[in-house]
Design a protein around this nucleic acid. Structure first.
Lengths: 196, 196
DNA sequence: CCTACCGATCGGTAGG
DNA sequence: CCTACCGATCGGTAGG
């Protein structure tokens, strides 16, 4: 019963990499997860590192697609920021394993692949910078704040959601998005406090 | 030349755990870092796991002390929030290794120690919740927002700083604190956007 | 802190 | 996908 294909192996790898880390997962662990021996995995893949690359690529791809959809939203910069936030939350919650591995295990990648991930992250962050800059130009956001810093702040909140948010609790997914969006908007619009 | 004491070993362990992760660091790696053999480390410690516990305990302790100092600040809730943020940034930047290990490698802890760390994190987060609640009660912050959610948002930004901020760049440490503080204040004070 | 190890486990391969 | 392995490396110990 239950032969496995390459996709099953990559998915299971994502599960274990996210839960125990790349170096904390052995090929035998991964085999056990699928009901087969560690050595049998090599019928599907070439090596352990290849699995890590593939899981992380999936995560990167999901984020990039989300950004493209969000940037295509008609309306104001505020609308596109909201779409970026909603899209990011959806990716994190619908693909916890790939995202967790993407965010936490990229350090275990070989040099070349790691540089590729860094570049992918910067392309993704650029979508946020673009929206913040546009919004500042049109007066939707304050124009005296650094778009890069604010992009990082918003992404910090978004990337951390997978660490604490649990579905099925008192706060629904839409409410979560509202709260993040509201918090972020306050951070880039208001002129309260010590900022002149 | 250069005999080592237990503290040296723990510090070096923090360096490697933060850089490559607990499972990515071997006792021989750690020995090499100190100029001795892996087996020689056991003159100073009982086991690898003990090193992880100790590094993470140092991180937890630093945050707890910072919170206590911040809560003792005379003045308004806004002043104490600022002190919490400034203290957190200082701990992250002055103790990158312990903090990085505390934040990213706690999953590698044995069950009991891991539960202890979770409890320590909650105690620390409670300081933020307390200040947000006080500020809401005195009218300094909006009272219709959930203190726990906003604490998590602020801590998400703070915990991520070690991942991107580099000292010696265009943004100084005081400026970094200002930006985080301003962003957070906007998030909890303003009533812009879709929040009623 | 080194020498000289230990048994266990690692990623991976040959051959079926 | 299993059997039967391989050399390398793992955390750790005894004895000095």
């Amino acid at each position: 019963m239950s032969r496995h294909n390459r996709d099953d192996v990559v998915s299971a790898a994502g599960r274990l990499f996210a839960a125990r880390g790349y170096h904390g997962t052995s090929m035998r662990d991964l085999g056990r997860e699928l009901g087969l021996l560690g050595s049998s995995l090599y019928a599907h893949i070439e090596g352990k590192q290849e699995l890590l690359v593939e899981v992380i690529d999936r995560g990167a791809e999901l984020f990039q697609q989300s950004a493209e959809r969000a940037l295509a939203v008609e309306g104001s910069s505020v609308d596109r920021l909201r779409a970026l936030i909603a899209g990011h939350v959806a990716v994190v919650l619908d693909h916890r394993d790939e995202v967790g591995t993407f965010l936490n295990e990229a350090t275990a990648l070989d040099e070349d692949a790691r540089l590729g991930v860094i570049a992918a992250r910067d392309r993704y962050e650029a979508a946020f910078r673009l929206v913040l800059r546009d919004g500042a130009a049109t007066g939707a956001f304050r124009s005296d704040l650094d778009p890069r810093t604010n992009s990082i702040f918003i992404l910090s909140i978004l990337n951390a959601t997978g660490r604490w948010y649990r579905e099925g609790g008192p706060v629904g997914r839409a409410e979560l998005v509202d709260r993040i969006f509201g918090f972020a908007l306050g951070g880039i619009q208001s002129s309260v406090g010590s900022r002149s």
